[in-house]
Design a binder for these strands. Sequence first.
DNA 1: CCAGACACCGTAAACGTTTACAGAAGCGTC
DNA 2: GACGCTTCTGTAAACGTTTACGGTGTCTGG
Lengths: 356, 356
Amino acid sequence: MAQGPTITTIAKRAGVSIASVSRVLNGLPTRQDTVSRVMAAAEELGYVRNAVARSLKSRRTHQVAFAMADVGNPAYLSMLREIQPVLKDAGYRLVLHSTGAVVADEIDVLHSLGERYVDGMIMVPLRVTEAHLEMLATARAPVVVIGSVPEGTPVDNVRADSRTGVRLAIDHLHALGRRRIGLVNGPLDTVPGAARGAGYREALGALGLPYDDELVEIGDFYRDEGRRAVATLLARRPDVDALMCANDLIALGALDVLRAAGRRVPEDVAVVGMDDTDLAAASWPSLTSVSLGSAERGRTAAELLLDRLQESEHAPRVVTVPPRLTVRASTTGGEAPPRVGESGTTGSGEPDGGGG
Amino acid sequence: MAQGPTITTIAKRAGVSIASVSRVLNGLPTRQDTVSRVMAAAEELGYVRNAVARSLKSRRTHQVAFAMADVGNPAYLSMLREIQPVLKDAGYRLVLHSTGAVVADEIDVLHSLGERYVDGMIMVPLRVTEAHLEMLATARAPVVVIGSVPEGTPVDNVRADSRTGVRLAIDHLHALGRRRIGLVNGPLDTVPGAARGAGYREALGALGLPYDDELVEIGDFYRDEGRRAVATLLARRPDVDALMCANDLIALGALDVLRAAGRRVPEDVAVVGMDDTDLAAASWPSLTSVSLGSAERGRTAAELLLDRLQESEHAPRVVTVPPRLTVRASTTGGEAPPRVGESGTTGSGEPDGGGG
DNA sequence: CCAGACACCGTAAACGTTTACAGAAGCGTC
DNA sequence: GACGCTTCTGTAAACGTTTACGGTGTCTGG
């Protein structure tokens, strides 16, 4: 790890000034003779530009941060998968912040924008607090928020629409003749929980179906919580003929319980998940699931941010990405084989060298 | 985005020199009076340290790169999930490089180490070429390679052991009384493909089972390729009673085909996957799968790197992480309910605000 | 009352670039 | 040969920190 060569080292060796070296390296007009001397020297020394010094002067780091609660969560992952190549193609590196479910950490990350180690940031806040809004208002670099942010917040904003998403699913179930449609939701004090609950009510109303408290059970967004909730619901209302689940993990839990109870899916009970993760295609029966377009939201966010980074000075923009329903076996039955290439993962085995 | 305050701004406002400001901000001994003046000024101005300038001087960026082929791949993801918190706790940011399957990109990333925007790097190369070795030998910052690297390469090295992993699975199947155990492998010119093939032969040999070409089928590491390969194998050898699959996606494909062919799993054919991804727990029947310890490899790599970054000057170290077999329904049958909290994902619904 | 010790502080240099500016050299024109 | 013009190059300042060094002021002890 010997001290690497700098522009000065090159200048000495080539017998020119550091300014000339810099000019050559940046392709500014220079006499041919100088160019070749500098190039030769750089080559021989194995010179590589120091990104830090360059950033200090240029006030550009060519780095962008992506902050979300948990890298492990499939929804964030599919955003990441789209964000990464967009940024890379534009010459930006990606700095990852996984904040855990801790709001204070999110604020920290926003604060760290001031350190200027990134040119901008994409953030998916768990919930948007006063502190968030304050930090966003005074942020020293452009931020794009994935999720909803109040009118007037000076950041670009990419939204999902899970109310309409739930509506799509309920309409689908209704069209299949289901009339006693249960909802297995997550906590109501989370943004998605609240939105999905509201969507459910709305959808029933639009279809002229009565809203029935007994058909709704609240758990959490995990598989075992899903199992618990569905078991409860099933005991209370054995006549339920469809389950709208607030995410895919809950839906997997539902499949577990229904199978154990001897109910056929979808003949006896149809099941719909949400987020359309890889798990939906992997399960059996494969899960009909509402995609909230996390991939598209990721890509859009990245594009909005890049646009801002080109100095463009427009008013904050809001983009809402429409949900899509992916119909699979858990509602329509029939061994519809999962479509080829359906999942975005390459899933290739990862190298390991078989050592040892 | 007005020009933020610097150490100089603070110095002026507090009526002291920039050196004093720096000392206060770094907690070096200073008169109480000065401390409070500086702190007050910093507070009022909303000062945040400029990380770039600091890095230039200190030659430390507090960033670490993680480079792998594809963020979407579950095996890399579980590494990432472990690496991230380890680095974060040590005060490092994570820069993500997804190189695609392009070897040239991996070399580029290694080259970019010279730009000094990171203090070190963890890399999972697809395969290790001459060019890799050359770059690794001259790398200007510490690198930890996940995967095997030849003796004498001056980098720390964390290996999996998929040969033993395959052996574990075959032993398990053998203990269950299976004797016609097929292998559904990926391409043999990939490191994992070759290692898994070798492990299979070895394991059969150790158990005194004959190696039978007809029981082996080569496809690729995807679900639909798995389906194709298994269908072929099944047509050729309808008497097969177990399938060792080179990864979980292939195994899912196997489940699809077996189900369609009316074979019961595991009664007629037992199935084992590899990598023990989230999909293994989600599928039905849930998949017995060999974990190659990608989570542990990730964590180990992070720890090795941190250790190097503390100036420690030891010889290159090699750590081999042992495989583990997770037994589930696809080999033992019996509605073994997936264990609570089995998957590492939080799986919480992601916020969306239900806008629009 | 002075020497010396000590605590604190300011000046300036350094980290490795980019870039404004002015000087030098070459060349054509009158 | 003076002049202007063009083309190239070097000097130096700047980006925002950290830090070595020396200076100032205060205090202690003789």
